[in-house]
Protein backbone atom coordinates (compact mmCIF):
# COMPACT_ATOMS: atom_id res chain seq x y z
CA UNK A 1 0.00 0.00 0.00
CA UNK A 2 2.64 2.53 1.06
CA UNK A 3 4.94 1.21 -1.63
CA UNK A 4 2.48 1.91 -4.38
CA UNK A 5 1.72 5.34 -2.94
CA UNK A 6 5.43 6.10 -2.91
CA UNK A 7 5.70 4.91 -6.47
CA UNK A 8 2.82 7.15 -7.49
CA UNK A 9 4.51 10.06 -5.79
CA UNK A 10 7.78 9.39 -7.54
CA UNK A 11 6.28 8.82 -10.97
CA UNK A 12 6.48 12.45 -12.14
CA UNK A 13 10.14 12.56 -11.18
CA UNK A 14 10.86 9.43 -13.17
CA UNK A 15 9.10 10.98 -16.10
CA UNK A 16 11.17 14.16 -16.06
CA UNK A 17 14.36 12.24 -15.50
CA UNK A 18 15.29 12.01 -19.21
CA UNK A 19 14.87 15.76 -19.59
CA UNK A 20 17.00 16.36 -16.53
CA UNK A 21 19.69 14.00 -17.73
CA UNK A 22 19.70 15.67 -21.10
CA UNK A 23 20.08 19.06 -19.49
CA UNK A 24 22.83 17.93 -17.15
CA UNK A 25 24.86 16.05 -19.76
CA UNK A 26 24.53 18.50 -22.61
CA UNK A 27 24.30 21.79 -20.77
CA UNK A 28 25.45 21.76 -17.15
CA UNK A 29 28.54 19.61 -17.66
CA UNK A 30 29.80 21.43 -20.77
CA UNK A 31 29.19 24.77 -19.06
CA UNK A 32 31.22 23.70 -16.05
CA UNK A 33 33.96 22.34 -18.29
CA UNK A 34 33.99 25.63 -20.17
CA UNK A 35 34.18 27.53 -16.90
CA UNK A 36 37.11 25.38 -15.86
CA UNK A 37 38.84 25.80 -19.23
CA UNK A 38 38.44 29.57 -19.05
CA UNK A 39 40.68 29.68 -15.98
CA UNK A 40 43.42 27.43 -17.38
CA UNK A 41 46.75 28.59 -18.73
CA UNK A 42 49.02 26.96 -21.27
CA UNK A 43 49.25 26.22 -24.96
CA UNK A 44 48.49 23.39 -27.32
CA UNK A 45 51.99 21.92 -27.27
CA UNK A 46 52.56 21.89 -23.51
CA UNK A 47 48.94 21.32 -22.59
CA UNK A 48 46.62 23.46 -20.50
CA UNK A 49 46.73 23.42 -16.71
CA UNK A 50 44.13 24.48 -14.20
CA UNK A 51 45.61 27.57 -12.54
CA UNK A 52 42.44 29.54 -11.68
CA UNK A 53 43.86 32.32 -13.77
CA UNK A 54 40.84 34.63 -13.72
CA UNK A 55 42.68 37.51 -15.38
CA UNK A 56 41.97 35.84 -18.75
CA UNK A 57 38.57 37.52 -18.37
CA UNK A 58 39.88 41.05 -17.85
CA UNK A 59 42.53 40.50 -20.53
CA UNK A 60 39.91 39.25 -22.99
CA UNK A 61 37.64 42.15 -22.19
CA UNK A 62 40.37 44.76 -22.61
CA UNK A 63 41.39 43.27 -25.98
CA UNK A 64 37.95 42.73 -27.42
CA UNK A 65 35.47 45.07 -25.69
CA UNK A 66 35.00 46.95 -28.96
CA UNK A 67 33.70 43.80 -30.66
CA UNK A 68 31.50 43.08 -27.64
CA UNK A 69 29.84 46.46 -27.72
CA UNK A 70 29.54 46.23 -31.49
CA UNK A 71 27.79 42.85 -31.27
CA UNK A 72 25.30 44.18 -28.73
CA UNK A 73 24.64 47.31 -30.81
CA UNK A 74 24.22 45.30 -34.03
CA UNK A 75 21.96 42.92 -32.09
CA UNK A 76 19.76 45.76 -30.84
CA UNK A 77 19.51 47.46 -34.22
CA UNK A 78 18.79 44.20 -36.05
CA UNK A 79 16.19 43.15 -33.46
CA UNK A 80 14.45 46.52 -33.66
CA UNK A 81 14.37 46.34 -37.46
CA UNK A 82 13.11 42.76 -37.32
CA UNK A 83 10.26 43.82 -34.99
CA UNK A 84 9.27 46.71 -37.23
CA UNK A 85 9.15 44.42 -40.25
CA UNK A 86 7.79 41.33 -38.54
CA UNK A 87 4.85 42.75 -36.59
CA UNK A 88 2.83 43.93 -39.60
CA UNK A 89 3.63 40.69 -41.43
CA UNK A 90 2.50 38.56 -38.49
CA UNK A 91 -0.57 40.78 -37.98
CA UNK A 92 -1.54 40.51 -41.59
CA UNK A 93 -1.13 36.75 -41.73
CA UNK A 94 -3.02 36.24 -38.45
CA UNK A 95 -5.99 38.51 -39.18
CA UNK A 96 -6.11 38.73 -42.98
CA UNK A 97 -4.51 35.46 -44.00
CA UNK A 98 -7.80 33.58 -43.96
CA UNK A 99 -7.51 30.16 -45.48
CA UNK A 100 -4.06 30.96 -46.91
CA UNK A 101 -2.50 31.25 -43.46
CA UNK A 102 -0.52 28.07 -43.67
CA UNK A 103 0.70 28.71 -47.22
CA UNK A 104 1.82 32.19 -46.19
CA UNK A 105 3.70 30.80 -43.21
CA UNK A 106 5.26 28.23 -45.50
CA UNK A 107 6.39 30.99 -47.86
CA UNK A 108 7.96 32.75 -44.89
CA UNK A 109 9.95 29.64 -44.05
CA UNK A 110 10.74 28.70 -47.64
CA UNK A 111 14.15 30.43 -47.76
CA UNK A 112 15.16 28.28 -44.79
CA UNK A 113 15.24 25.27 -47.07
CA UNK A 114 18.35 26.78 -48.66
CA UNK A 115 21.58 26.65 -46.68
CA UNK A 116 22.22 29.62 -44.41
CA UNK A 117 25.66 30.20 -45.89
CA UNK A 118 24.44 30.10 -49.49
CA UNK A 119 21.67 32.60 -48.72
CA UNK A 120 24.12 34.96 -47.07
CA UNK A 121 26.64 34.55 -49.90
CA UNK A 122 23.88 35.41 -52.39
CA UNK A 123 23.43 38.73 -50.60
CA UNK A 124 27.14 39.19 -51.18
CA UNK A 125 26.51 38.96 -54.94
CA UNK A 126 23.55 41.33 -54.80
CA UNK A 127 25.31 43.95 -52.69
CA UNK A 128 28.72 43.88 -54.41
CA UNK A 129 30.03 47.11 -55.97
CA UNK A 130 28.85 46.13 -59.43
CA UNK A 131 25.98 43.96 -58.28
CA UNK A 132 22.23 44.34 -58.67
CA UNK A 133 21.57 46.72 -55.78
CA UNK A 134 24.16 49.35 -56.61
CA UNK A 135 23.52 49.11 -60.34
CA UNK A 136 19.86 49.94 -59.71
CA UNK A 137 20.87 52.77 -57.42
CA UNK A 138 23.07 54.14 -60.20
CA UNK A 139 20.35 53.74 -62.84
CA UNK A 140 17.83 55.55 -60.64
CA UNK A 141 20.41 58.24 -59.76
CA UNK A 142 19.91 57.79 -56.03
CA UNK A 143 23.49 56.81 -55.24
CA UNK A 144 24.32 60.29 -53.91
CA UNK A 145 21.26 60.24 -51.71
CA UNK A 146 22.12 56.79 -50.34
CA UNK A 147 25.62 58.03 -49.59
CA UNK A 148 24.18 61.05 -47.75
CA UNK A 149 22.11 58.83 -45.45
CA UNK A 150 25.13 56.53 -45.00
CA UNK A 151 23.47 53.45 -46.46
CA UNK A 152 26.32 53.38 -48.98
CA UNK A 153 29.89 54.12 -47.87
CA UNK A 154 31.74 57.16 -49.19
CA UNK A 155 33.79 54.91 -51.48
CA UNK A 156 30.52 53.70 -53.02
CA UNK A 157 30.08 50.25 -51.57
CA UNK A 158 27.58 48.42 -49.35
CA UNK A 159 29.35 45.10 -49.05
CA UNK A 160 31.89 45.01 -46.17
CA UNK A 161 30.08 47.82 -44.33
CA UNK A 162 27.93 47.62 -41.15
CA UNK A 163 24.85 48.17 -43.32
CA UNK A 164 25.50 44.88 -45.11
CA UNK A 165 26.11 42.97 -41.88
CA UNK A 166 23.04 44.31 -40.04
CA UNK A 167 20.99 43.81 -43.22
CA UNK A 168 22.15 40.19 -43.42
CA UNK A 169 21.30 39.65 -39.76
CA UNK A 170 17.80 41.08 -40.22
CA UNK A 171 17.22 38.94 -43.29
CA UNK A 172 18.47 35.73 -41.74
CA UNK A 173 16.69 36.02 -38.40
CA UNK A 174 13.38 37.56 -39.49
CA UNK A 175 11.35 34.31 -39.28
CA UNK A 176 12.43 33.94 -35.64
CA UNK A 177 10.70 37.26 -35.00
CA UNK A 178 7.60 36.67 -37.11
CA UNK A 179 6.64 33.23 -35.80
CA UNK A 180 6.26 33.96 -32.05
CA UNK A 181 4.37 37.19 -32.76
CA UNK A 182 2.15 35.33 -35.18
CA UNK A 183 1.41 32.65 -32.60
CA UNK A 184 0.43 35.30 -30.04
CA UNK A 185 -1.75 37.22 -32.50
CA UNK A 186 -3.36 34.08 -33.81
CA UNK A 187 -4.70 33.39 -30.32
CA UNK A 188 -6.42 36.77 -30.09
CA UNK A 189 -10.15 36.14 -30.43
CA UNK A 190 -11.54 38.35 -33.25
CA UNK A 191 -14.66 38.72 -31.07
CA UNK A 192 -12.56 40.91 -28.77
CA UNK A 193 -12.12 43.36 -31.62
CA UNK A 194 -15.86 43.44 -32.19
CA UNK A 195 -16.37 43.92 -28.47
CA UNK A 196 -13.98 46.85 -28.37
CA UNK A 197 -15.71 48.55 -31.28
CA UNK A 198 -19.03 47.97 -29.47
CA UNK A 199 -17.43 49.87 -26.59
CA UNK A 200 -16.69 52.81 -28.90
CA UNK A 201 -13.02 52.10 -29.48
CA UNK A 202 -11.80 53.26 -32.87
CA UNK A 203 -9.41 51.00 -34.80
CA UNK A 204 -6.28 52.62 -33.41
CA UNK A 205 -7.30 52.32 -29.78
CA UNK A 206 -8.63 48.80 -30.32
CA UNK A 207 -5.16 47.92 -31.53
CA UNK A 208 -3.23 49.75 -28.84
CA UNK A 209 -5.50 48.77 -25.91
CA UNK A 210 -6.48 45.23 -26.90
CA UNK A 211 -4.39 43.58 -29.61
CA UNK A 212 -0.98 44.97 -28.73
CA UNK A 213 -1.11 44.08 -25.01
CA UNK A 214 -2.35 40.60 -25.85
CA UNK A 215 0.51 40.08 -28.29
CA UNK A 216 3.22 41.26 -25.89
CA UNK A 217 4.22 37.75 -24.77
CA UNK A 218 4.86 36.93 -28.42
CA UNK A 219 6.88 40.11 -28.87
CA UNK A 220 8.87 39.25 -25.78
CA UNK A 221 9.66 35.76 -27.06
CA UNK A 222 10.46 37.18 -30.50
CA UNK A 223 12.96 39.63 -29.05
CA UNK A 224 14.65 36.85 -27.10
CA UNK A 225 14.74 34.45 -30.05
CA UNK A 226 16.13 37.15 -32.32
CA UNK A 227 18.48 39.15 -30.15
CA UNK A 228 20.35 36.28 -28.50
CA UNK A 229 21.44 34.45 -31.69
CA UNK A 230 22.01 37.71 -33.58
CA UNK A 231 24.40 39.04 -30.93
CA UNK A 232 26.49 35.89 -31.09
CA UNK A 233 26.29 35.33 -34.86
CA UNK A 234 29.52 35.26 -36.85
CA UNK A 235 28.51 34.04 -40.30
CA UNK A 236 27.07 37.35 -41.51
CA UNK A 237 30.09 39.33 -40.36
CA UNK A 238 32.40 36.80 -42.03
CA UNK A 239 30.67 36.82 -45.40
CA UNK A 240 29.24 40.33 -45.63
CA UNK A 241 31.55 42.20 -43.26
CA UNK A 242 34.83 44.03 -43.70
CA UNK A 243 37.56 45.31 -41.44
CA UNK A 244 35.31 47.30 -39.13
CA UNK A 245 32.42 44.90 -38.59
CA UNK A 246 34.01 42.01 -36.68
CA UNK A 247 31.60 40.67 -34.07
CA UNK A 248 32.42 38.83 -30.87
CA UNK A 249 31.29 35.55 -32.45
CA UNK A 250 34.10 35.89 -35.01
CA UNK A 251 36.62 36.48 -32.25
CA UNK A 252 35.48 33.45 -30.26
CA UNK A 253 35.54 31.33 -33.39
CA UNK A 254 39.10 32.31 -34.33
CA UNK A 255 40.38 32.07 -30.76
CA UNK A 256 39.04 28.55 -30.52
CA UNK A 257 39.60 27.05 -33.96
CA UNK A 258 42.48 29.06 -35.37
CA UNK A 259 44.57 30.10 -32.40
CA UNK A 260 43.68 27.08 -30.23
CA UNK A 261 43.54 29.53 -27.32
CA UNK A 262 40.80 27.64 -25.49
CA UNK A 263 40.92 29.66 -22.24
CA UNK A 264 40.38 33.00 -23.97
CA UNK A 265 37.62 31.58 -26.17
CA UNK A 266 35.88 30.11 -23.12
CA UNK A 267 36.25 33.32 -21.11
CA UNK A 268 34.84 35.41 -23.95
CA UNK A 269 31.89 33.01 -24.29
CA UNK A 270 31.18 33.39 -20.58
CA UNK A 271 31.30 37.16 -20.73
CA UNK A 272 28.90 37.05 -23.68
CA UNK A 273 26.59 34.64 -21.89
CA UNK A 274 26.60 36.77 -18.74
CA UNK A 275 25.94 39.94 -20.71
CA UNK A 276 23.04 38.32 -22.56
CA UNK A 277 21.52 36.87 -19.37
CA UNK A 278 21.74 40.17 -17.51
CA UNK A 279 20.28 41.94 -20.53
CA UNK A 280 17.40 39.50 -20.79
CA UNK A 281 16.50 39.74 -17.09
CA UNK A 282 16.76 43.52 -17.10
CA UNK A 283 14.51 43.57 -20.14
CA UNK A 284 12.01 41.27 -18.45
CA UNK A 285 11.96 43.60 -15.43
CA UNK A 286 11.43 46.61 -17.63
CA UNK A 287 8.51 44.84 -19.26
CA UNK A 288 6.96 44.35 -15.87
CA UNK A 289 7.34 40.66 -15.32
CA UNK A 290 9.71 38.96 -12.96
CA UNK A 291 9.17 35.55 -14.36
CA UNK A 292 11.00 35.47 -17.65
CA UNK A 293 10.29 31.85 -18.35
CA UNK A 294 6.59 32.14 -17.69
CA UNK A 295 6.37 35.14 -19.95
CA UNK A 296 8.23 33.47 -22.78
CA UNK A 297 6.26 30.27 -22.51
CA UNK A 298 2.85 31.87 -22.38
Amino acid sequence: MTWSRLRAKLAPYWLVLPAWLWLVIFFVVPTLVMLSVSTMTGNLLDGFKQTWHWSTYSHGWSLYHVQFVRSIVYGLIATALCLVIAYPVAYWIAFRGGRHKSSLLFLLLLPFFVSFVIRTQSWGFILSDHGLALNWARDLHVLGLLKDVHLVSSSGSILQTPVAVVGGLVYNFLPFTVLPIYVALERVDPALLEASSDLYANKASAFSKVVLPLSMPGVFAAVLLTFVPVASDYVNATILGGTKTTMIGNIIQTEYFTNSDYPTAAALSFILMAALLIGVFAYARALGTEDVLEMAAR
Binding site: V33, S36, V37, L45, G47, F48, K49, Q50
Partner: peptide, 15 residues
Amino acid sequence: LSALGLSLAACGIPA
Protein backbone atom coordinates in the same frame (compact mmCIF):
# COMPACT_ATOMS: atom_id res chain seq x y z
CA LEU B 1 38.22 19.02 -24.94
CA SER B 2 35.55 16.44 -25.58
CA ALA B 3 33.23 17.39 -22.80
CA LEU B 4 32.90 14.16 -20.92
CA GLY B 5 36.42 12.93 -21.51
CA LEU B 6 37.70 15.84 -19.49
CA SER B 7 36.96 15.24 -15.87
CA LEU B 8 36.96 18.40 -13.85
CA ALA B 9 38.96 16.75 -11.10
CA ALA B 10 41.84 16.19 -13.51
CA CYS B 11 41.93 19.94 -14.10
CA GLY B 12 43.81 20.39 -17.31
CA ILE B 13 44.19 19.55 -20.96
CA PRO B 14 47.27 17.36 -21.24
CA ALA B 15 50.23 18.13 -23.43
